[in-house]
Design a binder for these strands. Structure first.
Lengths: 231, 231
DNA sequence: GTCATAACTTAGTATAACTAAGTTAATGTG
DNA sequence: CACATTAACTTAGTTATACTAAGTTATGAC
């Protein structure tokens, strides 16, 4: 029998050999809890996490290179469910354009339900965390390829005959992101009702690109794919 | 004659009485220079500013309550020109819908030309700086009222007969913001060409909301004004 | 038992924002 | 023109932060 265990709140027992990942997981869980409870990334300090876990601060650096990378991993866990959520929302509609609107609404709602993760993943500066610049990861967490599919189904149904699927997917992403991020940044602004806000954007694209030939506007859209974004 | 002036790089002479604002101005200029030179808000520390100005760190707190408020003021100076820039871009077009597209392009270009100011003013968290939540200031720096006017001119020209001007203005702002902020956040992503990107969004709104009555989509837009944004 | 080493801790550095309390010098007043 | 007032600024510090160097503990193979 080991000596009387102290009754201190969170005295961790050292992990078994080969089970070092246990602490790693506890760190992620604690950081997530702190993020949700405090609602602000800045409150999730290394010391706060260590205290919550019951280990010391330097132990965290055995499992994560730095604080930001740790936080990004916490946030990315939320977005593991993101694609499935959007798909489920889209599947509830028969019409593919309607499905696109549902996906857009679901996108915004998901972002608003988890504002700080959204902010860290999609509203950072270009040099904040290298991981957030990895294109494959960006495509993955934003469910971009699913979005391409959803737009393609619209095109297949005849919705935007002259539109470029890739560009429309980007434009709709940008719109949904714009709504989400503005609502997160400026919650006090008198925004229109959210559902109509999203729907108007999606339907505008759907209808506008449909009636493209009847345009009374001087310029055609002449869409083309770009290899890389230019400043 | 005063004793031999040291030849140190930036030995400030104390301001005259009643001219305390001189240091304030020098601080703003120096912070702006640092922001542009380093390209990252995090590099513009109080110490760095003080060193650049040639004063000591605490002197800065005689003129600004905290670092973030100071930085916001630096950024807002950029956006003093914003409204005029958008107006100029819009004035170059005859057709009001075309003008709206020009405004959108100008919006994105301005943001990309000054990414860090844009980021600090429009991509922050809700609790970062109180000043960024002031609705009047938000309307002012984003040139929202001008945008309302530009949308109204489209409606007057018959562009979106069933559309709500306020909601369309918000939607177009969100789209332009979405493009701008995603390009800032994810510069490595293979975005479509910027001009077409913006144009497609604006024209989609213009054309889509025009052809509203001919919609083959089940739902009408039934737009209505909201008093305040709900989560 | 013993020993290699995975899993941690102790003690510290560096840099950041911000503050308390003092000093310097410009200027209105006698 | 002395001199008191006080705006304008400094010196010296506190606290909080991310992160590191170097040590210690205990697990489990032998």
């Amino acid at each position: 029998m080991e000596p009387a265990e102290a009754l201190l709140p969170s005295k961790r027992t050292r992990a078994r050999r080969g089970d070092g990942a246990r602490l790693r997981e506890e760190i992620l869980v604690a950081a997530d809890r702190l993020l949700r409870e405090t609602g602000q990334e800045s409150n999730v300090s290394i010391d706060a996490i260590a205290k919550a876990v019951g280990c010391t601060a330097p132990s965290i650096y055995l499992h994560f290179p730095d604080r930001r990378t740790l936080l990004i991993e916490v946030c990315e866990r939320y977005y593991a469910l993101f694609g499935a959520t959007l798909d489920a929302a889209g599947a509830a509609a028969d019409d593919p354009l309607e499905a696109l609107a549902h996906r857009g609404e679901a996108y915004v709602h998901f972002g608003l339900a988890h504002p700080e993760p959204y902010r860290l993943l999609f509203m950072h500066g270009p040099n904040d965390v290298p991981a957030t610049q990895d294109i494959a990861r960006v495509r993955s967490i934003s469910a971009f390829d699913d979005q391409l599919g959803a737009v393609q189904r619209c095109k297949d149904a005849g919705y935007f005959p002259d539109g470029d699927v890739y560009e429309i997917a980007c434009a709709l992403w940008a719109s949904a992101h714009g709504i989400t991020s503005l609502l997160i940044s400026k919650p006090g602004f008198p925004w229109p009702p959210l559902a109509d806000f999203v729907r108007a954007t999606v339907l505008a694209h759907g209808l506008g690109l449909m009636s493209h030939t009847s345009s009374n506007c001087a310029h055609s859209l002449d869409l083309e794919r770009a290899p890389i974004g230019e400043r």
